[in-house]
Amino acid sequence: MKKILPIIIACATGLTILAGYFFQDRLAPILGLLINWGIVLVGLAGLIGIAYLVRMHIFRIAHRQKGGFYSVIVLLAFLFTLIAGLILTPQNAFYRDWVLNIQTPVEASLLAVLSVTLLYASLYLVRTRGWTPMSVGFLVGALVSLILNLAVFQFQPGSRGEVWALVLRRLPLAGLRGILIGMALGGLIVGLRVLLAVDRPYEGE
C-alpha cells in the first residue's frame, strides 16, 4: 500500500487532467481544483527550497565554512526582505523600489556580462565545432539574422527585396519546427512514462 498509493495518486491525477483536454466542459470544476492544489504544492515546494537555501547558509556560518561572510549577507538580505514584505506587502512603493532596484541592476548586469562571454565565444565556432554541416548552418543562420537585425538595408513594402528578405528570415523556421515537433514527441514520452508509472521520481526512481 505504501508503494501503491503514490502510484495510484499520480496516475489518477494525471489521467483526470489529461481527460480534461477531451471532456473539458464536463470536468472543468474538478480540473480547476486539481490545478489549484498543484499551485499550492509548487508554492510550498518553493518555500521549502528556500528553507534549504537558508539552512545551507546558516550551516556555513555555524561551521565557519568557506564563504561564511557571504552567507551573512544572504541571510540579512533575506530576513529584511521577508519581514519588510510581510509588514509592508509587495504593493508598497518602498518595498517595490527595494526589490526592483536590487534585482534590475544585478540581473541586467549579469546579462551584460553574458554579452561579453558570447562575443568571446563567437570567436570559437570553428575551433569548437569544426567544419560540419551544422556549424556551417549555424554560421549562416547567425550572420543572416544579425545582418537583418542591423537594418542597414531598406526595403520598399511589397518589393522583391522585401520578399526575399522575409524568405531568408523564415528559412530557419524549418529547423525550429523540426525541433519543436521532436521535443513535443520527447515530452509526450516523458509524461507518459510518469503516467504509466514507468518512471516514479516521487519514489526516488
Partner: peptide
C-alpha cells in the same frame, strides 16, 4: 510521507506536459 504530494505533483505535471505537447505543439 512526501511521496504522496510529490506523486500528485508529478502526475499533474506529466499530464499537462502530454496534453500541451500533443495539442499545443505537435
Amino acid at each position: 510521507l512526501g511521496r504522496v504530494p510529490l506523486a500528485f505533483l508529478a502526475g499533474l505535471t506529466a499530464a499537462v506536459t502530454v496534453g500541451g505537447a500533443v495539442f499545443g505543439t505537435l
